[in-house]
Design a binder for these strands. Sequence first.
DNA 1: TCCGAAATTGCATTCGGATGCAATACTGCC
DNA 2: GGCAGTATTGCATCCGAATGCAATTTCGGA
Lengths: 349, 349
Amino acid sequence: MNKPLKSVEKQGKGERRRATSYDVAELAGVSQSAVSRVFQDGASASQAMRDRVMAAADKLGYRPNAIARGLITQRSNMVAVVISKLTNLYYPEVLVQLTQRFSERGVRVLLFALERESDTGTALEQMLQYRVDGILTAAMFDNDALRTIENARIPVVFYNRTLQDQQVSSVRCDQQEGERWLVDELVKAGHRSFGIVEGPTDSVVSIERKMGALNELAALGISDITTVSGDYGYETGRQCFAELVEKHGSPPDAVIAANDVMAIGCIDEAREAFGLQVPHDISIVGFDGVGPARYAAYDVTTVRQPVERMTESAAAMLLERIENPDLSPEKRAFSGIHVRGSSARIAAT
Amino acid sequence: MNKPLKSVEKQGKGERRRATSYDVAELAGVSQSAVSRVFQDGASASQAMRDRVMAAADKLGYRPNAIARGLITQRSNMVAVVISKLTNLYYPEVLVQLTQRFSERGVRVLLFALERESDTGTALEQMLQYRVDGILTAAMFDNDALRTIENARIPVVFYNRTLQDQQVSSVRCDQQEGERWLVDELVKAGHRSFGIVEGPTDSVVSIERKMGALNELAALGISDITTVSGDYGYETGRQCFAELVEKHGSPPDAVIAANDVMAIGCIDEAREAFGLQVPHDISIVGFDGVGPARYAAYDVTTVRQPVERMTESAAAMLLERIENPDLSPEKRAFSGIHVRGSSARIAAT
DNA sequence: TCCGAAATTGCATTCGGATGCAATACTGCC
DNA sequence: GGCAGTATTGCATCCGAATGCAATTTCGGA
């Protein structure tokens, strides 16, 4: 007996059940499989059948149940997107773009927003339970988590973070290259003492940026370097600048901040608390190319991440691997866009 | 015959199937229902049973399939969160907070990011197919859409927008009250000519803000008002200011921008293009209380939305209505927090 | 007009877990 | 030790759509 016990029409309005393919089939006088086929892409169904079914479906307000479909097809058509709250001011933009990329391709986004980057536990458990087809993460997973994902055979793409020693797919902005450019320009402009403001210590991106800057400074034979660390926020940017001056004994020639927001904090602190003129007395650079970096009061020299291309690439990479799980991992690195603002005393183009 | 055709262990490693409750049951030597009960909250199961099942589950890496569970329980435990790209710079924060509120309560978020606020069509179709338990939207739905949702009996909560004439639940910041305060303060400070920079014309929030300001200005007998409109972005903020000056013939005493970002644009344009000092020569105020509004270079006088309380309230309201669909609609309005920055010539507290 | 190939359609089963009901196992108490 | 009462457990069925296979229809061609 496959017929539903009570058909949609017979129920009281207070508790109307959502129409199912059986209801549509009954009303249209066809089989449930026919209904199912009409609502699929490549399935075979005559025009007459299509019309009858669609008419019945419209009348009942029928919509295929994606949950039931997911169960039988073993495909949820959902991907998990993971971000961590503090990662960056610019992640919201990334998130919105990723979501749109996936939507365009008929894939839904299950969002996980972590309090801290290390809170992956529960989130991971949830995505596995929901049988997401893939994971796109802008937060790091520990090795246990990675092994779990690997065992579940779920494709993963890391956004702006990667594990050198592991075989994982990733899309990132080449932080090192960006920092190299910033350092080169600053050194060319004659700066010799540097302050570095790093981000949260558990941020891989921040670490990469710091190392990029340090390596290049070392390569250029510069050793007058003072380092302090913040949390990517404006307030700590200000504090960091003050700390920097105290540690160094005087303001350094240039400050390299791990992101634009902290660079802005540094600029404000330099101006307000130390009466310095930017870039006359000191150069300050950031990273990311977020909106506020373009505000006239700051005009931060920075490296802008090509967010559009990166998100497009990341979404495509993940979807490819969902279609074809045997594709080998791939790491793509995009060069940042060099933005010469007026916050640093460097030569224009 | 309920036993699976092939048990997990027997398969080749290349195509290992995810363990099901049947696999766990078999390994533990109990029934599938027992496994199901162990993985539920209020179900009855002896400690011995729990231990055996958990041991087997661990060995197999078993995780309940939320999709299958959703099918049988008629509860997906997912809510749709809808935002539109341009809505506001501050929505990302809202989004992250909402997601966290829902996560804490064991509810997953299916994210829909619309290109424009009016693109609700496909998104709506998708949420219905995925049988979300509720919808939290920061975008407007048209009447057709509303009727569809109503028919499907899915609870909805609107964030910062509401329909006066309709019975819908909403959480919003009282834009009118905020504008009233801003206007009062500006008038008290002696300003008599006003510029108003509105946001995108399809933004309900922008309209409310504009009307709030206009009404209060009218109430105070002020008629020297010039209006221009932008898109919530920094660049148009600058353009709008220039337009304002041109339209008015000279800079007005005060500018009321629909959001902080445009207020910042106005400040920059006033300073750079017109050599005005803020707030000595002109007062400029915004709305929202986003991060950049606090930057020292701007220190915007604004009305901050109590995002934390609003998201908390919105999430709670939606979840209550999911639990109890008969709860009547409710509109909650939160007063904004008055922030006296230095971008306007008004008295401190 | 008739035959065989191709296109449609229906039947029956499957996905994985939840749950009402009945059977069984314990508990405490007299 | 026996019995009522409660806690566990298993059985069978259900949720809603997809799909392999067989039955039926349609269509082209001779």
